[in-house]
Every structure is written in C-alpha cells, then in structure tokens.
Write a protein that binds this DNA or RNA. Structure first.
Lengths: 150, 150
DNA sequence: CAAAATTAAATTGTACGCAAGTAAATTGCG
DNA sequence: CGCAATTTACTTGCGTACAATTTAATTTTG
C-alpha cells in the first residue's frame, strides 16, 4: 500500500479503455485502407447509411463528435462522392447530409469489414456482452451529464 | 434481421469503447488543466513516476505509443522541467528518461486528480472489475500479436 | 573483421479531436 | 415588432496518433 497507488497506470480504468480502443482502430486500418476510408469516416458512414438523411448536429450527438471534427470529415466524404451536403430549407443554420448512390454502393463493399474484423477481438461472447452493457451504461450517464450542463 | 446489421453503429463494440475513452479523457481535462498537463502527458508521467528511469522504447510499450507520439510529448515535459532526457552511455541509440525533483513534486499535486475523477465514473465495483479484466485480457492478446508480427 | 541486417529515436505528413472564437440564422422576450 | 440570447456550423490553433522514412548505433553473419 503506497501513498501514490491511485497514480499507478495499472490502477486506472481509463488507460486500458484508451489503449484497447486505439489498438482495435489500428487493426481496422488495413481493411479500411482498401476502401480508402479512415475509422472516423467509417463510423460516420455507418450513421449516414442507416439514416439516409441526418444533420450535422444529430450526427455529432450519435458519434460524440463536434462540428470541429465533423466538418472536415464530411467535406472529405463529399469529395469522394459518398454524401451530399446541403443546407436545410427550413432552417438555414442546419446542414443536412444525404447518402448518394455511390455511398450506397460503398455500403455493400463495406460488408467485408465487420466480417474480416470478426476474428480480431478474441473475447468470449459473455465478456463481450457484459462490456457492451457497461460501456453503454457509461455513455448514457455521460449523455445525461452533457444534457444537464447545456 | 437486415443484410446490413453488421454495419450498424449499435452492433459494434469498438464504437462505445472509443466514445467512452474520449468522454472520460474530456472529463479529466479541467482537472489536468490546473496542473498544465494533457492526458497523454499525465499517463506518461504516471509511468515515469513509478519507474524513476525508463527509456523511450519501454515507455512506448507500456503506453502503447510509438516514438512519433512520445518524442514531442517528452520534449514538452522536459521543457516544463519534470523530466530529463539523456542518451544511454551503454547504447547511444537508447534515450533514458529520468524524473526530476520538480517532477517528483508534481506527483504530490497530481494526487488530487484521481480523487476528483472518482465520482466521474458511475458504474458498480463489480462492473468496473469485470471490464478491467476483459480490457487487460484484450490488451494481452494484442501484445502477443504485436510481438508475433515483429 | 566488414558488410548486411537490425534496432532506437527522430522526423515528416496526414488525419483527427477538441476548445475557443466567429458569423449567420432563428428564437424568445419585453 | 425589434433587439438580445441562442443555436448551428465553420474556422483556428494546439496536441496528439500513427505510418513511413531517415539517421545513427549496434548486432549479426558470412
């Protein structure tokens, strides 16, 4: 028992979270490279594939990213032809993101990504589910806090 | 059941890992700001506080960071006076990092960080322990893979 | 022993990630 | 209505992250 125990790397929860997150993303890279997508672009496309149309604010809430991060990502995805960006007619402040035909086509190609990544995470189904549940519980708490402070 | 289920954000484990990791780090920021440390500098100092002396390679292994990230971080910590950087006399390729007296003094000030962060992660002790165990299991697997490919 | 291979850290280039500030549109309040 | 407050996205600046390359030192090998 040491005065400084609370400052040991091994006693943090945040550090393994941070490290595992990065290591997984690093393992996505070779597969994503084949589609010329970054991880951030990939999860952004996931939301747009599902929604068909979504504005930047809602996209940011889903992804826990702000417009400072999303604006350049979305401009790149537009440049690649996967999405269209246009101002809402009802509210000119809001920017709507639409999926394009090329974006839809990419979705089929992207199906190989989860397939190839499958073997990468070697934990049991039970551990997976327990972790998933705890993580979303934490995210929900954070969302509430974020709402409260706003 | 949808052909594209595997591409839904909510079916990924990586996304909540990535989001929770960032949200926690964001909550560290106000506390770390008071010590003029970033999160990366903070976890780097954690390892150096424990080791007293460590080279960049070993530091990188502990933190899952490469010299491309660590070199600028370590130069900043040196500039702030918390560490000293000097080449090993046995092996001139290797750079040893030493804690300074100011660095040791910072350690006492940093004790408030884990204390203040305590309330930030609102999950049960059991969930904490289960997640901790699973995360380190994954990190160990990744380490093995990283060894193997090298 | 000398050339080749390996290792360690630094450098370069690209892409986030976020706080803070800006500009334009909209809402709300007196 | 008209102005202040709010909201939305964009921009700027700083600090990571990481792949790929470079440079120097060390080790391995023929």
């Amino acid at each position: 028992m040491d005065k400084y125990d609370s400052l040991k790397l091994e006693n943090q929860l945040c550090f393994p979270l941070y490290a595992v997150s990065k290591e997984i993303i690093r393992r996505y890279k070779p597969f994503l490279d084949e589609l010329d997508l970054t991880y951030t672009q990939y999860i952004t496309m996931m939301v747009i594939w599902e929604a068909k149309c979504i504005n930047v604010r809602d996209l940011g809430h889903r992804l826990y990213l702000d417009s400072g991060t999303l604006t350049p990502v979305l401009k790149k995805l537009e440049k690649k032809g996967y999405i269209a960006r246009c101002r809402s007619t009802e509210d000119e402040r809001s920017l709507n993101i639409y999926i394009t035909e090329e974006g839809e086509a990419l979705r089929d190609q992207a199906l190989i990504i989860p397939q190839k990544m499958g073997g990468c995470i070697s934990i049991s189904q039970a551990d997976f589910e327990a972790m998933y549940r705890t993580l979303y519980q934490m995210l929900d708490n954070f969302s509430e806090e974020n709402e409260a402070e706003a």
